[in-house]
Simulated assay, not measured.
Amino acid sequence: MEGDKMFDLMTKMYAEMQNGFKGVNERIDGLENKVDKTNITIENDIKPKIEALFDGYKQNSDKLDRIEKQVSKHDEFIIRRIK
């Protein structure tokens, strides 16, 4: 009789553990889906925008370099005229 009670208790505990693991696995699957969606969003939406911003920054930097060279030429001309 005592063995039957112990077996029933262990069977009940095993079933509860299996249900708990099932719940944990479902939560992990949900998190994996969210991570996948986040990665897709980063790759498809955010990354191209960052690359476009970087390209714009690079173009502005190049333009400023060209302007600086032109201003330098004018500075030299103005300094020669003043002397």
Rank of each mutant, 00 (worst) to 15 (best):
G3I: 09
G3L: 15
G3T: 10
D4Q: 11
D4P: 00
D4L: 08
D4M: 04
D4T: 05
K5C: 00
M6P: 00
M6A: 15
M6L: 15
F7T: 11
F7A: 13
D8M: 06
L9W: 05
L9E: 14
L9I: 10
L9V: 10
M10V: 05
T11R: 07
K12R: 15
K12A: 12
M13W: 13
Y14G: 08
Y14C: 13
Y14V: 11
A15Y: 14
A15S: 12
A15M: 13
E16D: 14
M17K: 10
Q18K: 12
N19H: 09
N19D: 11
N19W: 10
G20F: 02
G20L: 07
G20R: 08
K22T: 08
K22P: 00
G23Y: 01
G23W: 02
G23L: 01
V24R: 01
N25L: 06
N25W: 05
E26I: 01
R27M: 10
R27Y: 08
I28H: 04
D29S: 09
G30L: 07
G30Q: 09
L31S: 10
L31G: 06
L31K: 06
N33K: 14
N33F: 03
N33Y: 13
N33T: 12
D36T: 14
K37F: 12
K37W: 11
K37I: 11
T38G: 07
T38F: 13
N39V: 05
I40V: 04
I40M: 02
I40F: 05
I40L: 06
E43D: 14
D45I: 03
D45R: 04
D45C: 01
D45E: 11
D45P: 00
P48C: 03
E51I: 15
A52N: 14
A52L: 08
F54N: 07
F54M: 14
F54V: 15
D55H: 03
D55C: 04
D55Y: 05
G56H: 06
Y57I: 06
S61E: 09
S61M: 09
D62R: 04
D62Y: 00
K63P: 03
K63H: 13
K63F: 12
K63Q: 14
K63D: 15
D65Y: 03
R66H: 09
I67K: 02
I67N: 01
E68Q: 06
K69A: 15
K69R: 14
K69P: 00
V71Y: 01
K73V: 10
H74Q: 08
E76G: 02
F77I: 12
I78V: 10
I78Y: 13
I79Y: 04
R80F: 00
R80V: 01
R80T: 06
R81N: 07
I82D: 03
I82K: 05
K83F: 05
K83M: 00
K83W: 03
